[in-house]
Each structure stands twice: as C-alpha cells, then as structure tokens.
Amino acid sequence: MTINFRAVYAVLLREIKVFTREKERVISILVSPLLFLFAVGKGIEADSPAAGFTYQQFIYPGTLAMVILFTSITYGLYIVWDKRLDFLKEVLAAPISRGELFLGKALGGIFSAVCETIILLIIGAFFVLKINLISALLCLLACLPISLMITAMGLSIGGKMKSMEGFGLVMSFLTWPMFFLSGALFEIKDENFWLKAAGIINPFTYCVDIIRRILIGYSHFSVFTDLSVIFAWLILTCFIGIKIFGNLQQGK
C-alpha cells in the first residue's frame, strides 16, 4: 500500500490554515486549564504530594495534559462541522482514501495540540515553575502520541455524530470525567478503591503521569507503563477511527 502524501499534506495544510485563523478557538481552549492552574492552584492552599513543590506546581503538568486533552478532543469533534457545512464532501469525493484522510486530520490534531502546549509551557515557565529546554522538548515529544490518541478518539466519535448537539454530551460524559479521574488535581490514594480503579482504566491518567515525571520528577507508574498504555490506546483508537472513516458517507 502506498500513501498519497501530497493529499495527506493538503488535508493537513487546510487544518493548519484554519487553526491559525480561528484565534477565538485557540484562546478559548486555554481558559479552563488556566482557571485550574491559577484559581484552583493558587486559591486552594492544599499540600503538594510531591515534596519540594507547591500545590500549583504539582497540578501544572495536569493542566498541561488538560490542554492536550481539550484541544485534541474538540478538534476531533469538529469534523461534525465539516460534515454539516458540506465541506467534507469535497474531500470525500477526491481521490484520497479514508485512511489518508484520517491521517491528515490526525496530523492536524497533533499540530493544534503542540501549538497550545507551547503556549502553556511559556506561561508555565514565566509564572509557575522553572522549565528547562530539555523538559520542554520532552513535553512536546510526549504530546505527540497523547494528542494522536485523543484526536483519534474525537474523530471516531465525531465521525459517528450527526450534529453538534452531541458535543456537550461528549464533554460532560467523557472529557471532564477523564480529566477529574486522572489524578491531575490530586493524588489518587490506594484506600479509595473506586477512584483508584477508574484512574487505572482511564488512559488520561498515564498522560498526566508521564508529563508530571518530565516536569517535576514525580510519578506513579514507570515510564514504560505510561508509554505502553498510551501506545496501546493509540493503536486502538486509530484502528476504530480508520474503520469509522471508512464508512463515512454523504448523509445529512
């Protein structure tokens, strides 16, 4: 099988152009993470589980992961708009396979997530904690598989969704629970069985964990565990996504 890279690039280029033109979207994604970082992080005078770090510094990696989560999932769901605005038809009628279309879209999601991550890294380096260049680069590197996994999730759901009404549902029933049950804001204690179990099932837990390890050297799982879980989920979500894209038809 050969991949038509030019067509993939065309899809990616379109995503990049649209992303850089929709400034409101770029900024609105950052609102919730920044509220958590500055309102919750500074406001709640909680103890940090990680010795030598403030609570705000403890949750900073979690908010960074949250930016990736929100950017990727909303990006993926936005394919519903493409469907609604009939723009998707143009691409569906073009000689580009559904797999290539998925690849282009997924790369677009990674691009958006990397851009947003850079913004939050800069904010963090100025106001929250010292970040050296290597850990910043490692964060961006970790951002690649994480955003791919979550974008694929968003694209799969968006590929199935009929209208933007489902957007709120996905945010309330998937995105926010993924965030709250990941240990981004607090340490998950062994005594609380259900929270612990939810955390272990939740792929986002491992995303937070690896970024926290990179930034403050504190983590629950080994790097190997984190990466294995993330890549396993990545393969699963991409597989489902490509399947769903294969069935995309022109229905209203």
Binding site: R14, K17, V18, E22, L85, D86, F87, K89, E90
Partner: peptide, 8 residues
C-alpha cells in the same frame, strides 16, 4: 449545496 471552505 455549498461545499467550499469558508475560512480559506
């Protein structure tokens, strides 16, 4: 139906 990309 219209199918061009508004943002481009």
């Amino acid at each position: 139906e219209p199918s061009s990309d508004d943002m481009l």
